[in-house]
Design a protein around this nucleic acid. Structure first.
Ligand SMILES: [Zn+2]
Ligand SMILES: [Zn+2]
Ligand SMILES: [Zn+2]
Ligand SMILES: [Zn+2]
Lengths: 165, 165
DNA sequence: AATGAAATGTTATCCTGTAACACACTTGGA
DNA sequence: TCCAAGTGTGTTACAGGATAACATTTCATT
């Protein structure tokens, strides 16, 4: 089952499918737009997709280091810059971290829900919400370039266990 | 004229009034809730309010240093922590900076518009938007603790000058 | 004064992100 | 084939943001 955008991933979902789907999506998008999904970029995207939790740049760096690459920060940040620029990942400002985008290539006005306990992040694209934001901006005569909507709290699974550990 | 929440501050507005109003509001809020608005906390709040642009923690630190205090980072961060905890300032995640809250003590589900060019930030409290977010959270069975809504772009004044320098 | 809690000082260190410059690889044309 | 020009990567060094851990002071209350 693919990552169902708009719901928290089920406990035992086939996550390999998430990764495969994300990589295939990236390949397709790059092919269509004449972009170069180089080895590093591909590998960084793959690492980010290893879970639904946002990854820090230095986490990615460490994982790459464990594979012989030993890249330096700029290398990783450049790959992230590319992935961000083409909508393949989202940056989570409130955590200084990056998460794979569930719907690449469809414009990116996402709101992202992040669990305080398990860190799983899920994105939602809500036209109504986006229109409301745009309308508020219009009232202020403000020209939107980019928006950040991040909601922190407890995912359903963790809310259930709220009183445990 | 006080800081009109919900609009960009006019070019020649009486900003001293903004500062006075913010400080008085903080004093009142602290008095009501039995909180201690110590010298540092008060001074940090005052420095943050010196403009409508979000200030970085280290900017504040430098300004304090120029006054003889020479505090260290934790001192400033603690003051900020206090001000955040009681809704006197907002943290702008997308900029690692802090801005004074225009309506302290009224719950804080603000969306904040920030100009890319002049950095002025304006907050808006939109019940409709907040309800929409809450509704999306409910659909996901997600329990909201905190939300971050930051919109970057051009304020009316800067949009007008878009083609100049 | 004595006590305990809250606030501040101090030091050292992490974590995040970028500037600047060198090198390599691709691509297209002379 | 050789030569740009453009893009991507390697490397070094550093800037900027935030916190851990512990010592000390301040404050309200007894
Ligand atoms: Zn998955
Ligand atoms: Zn969770
Ligand atoms: Zn003002
Ligand atoms: Zn502006």
């Amino acid at each position: 089952m693919n990552p169902q955008p708009g719901s928290f991933p089920a406990a035992g979902h086939d996550h390999h499918a998430c990764v495969r789907s994300a990589l295939r999506g990236a390949e397709r998008l790059c092919a269509e737009q004449g972009l170069r999904l180089t080895a590093i970029r591909r590998r960084v995207l793959e690492l980010i997709w290893q879970s639904h939790r946002p990854s820090g740049a230095y986490e990615i760096l460490e994982q790459l280091a464990g594979e012989g690459h030993r890249p330096s920060p700029p290398t990783v940040y450049r790959a992230l810059e590319f992935l961000l620029a083409h909508g393949l990942v989202h940056r989570i400002s409130s955590r200084n971290a990056f998460v794979g985008c569930s719907r690449p290539g469809q414009g990116h006005m996402a709101q992202i829900f992040i669990c305080d306990r398990c860190s799983v992040a899920v994105e939602l694209a809500d036209g109504t919400l986006n229109r409301r934001i745009r309308r508020n901006a219009d009232d202020l005569h403000f020209h939107i370039r980019e928006q950040t909507v991040e909601i922190a709290g407890l995912c359903p699974a963790c809310a259930g266990r709220a009183n445990e550990g």
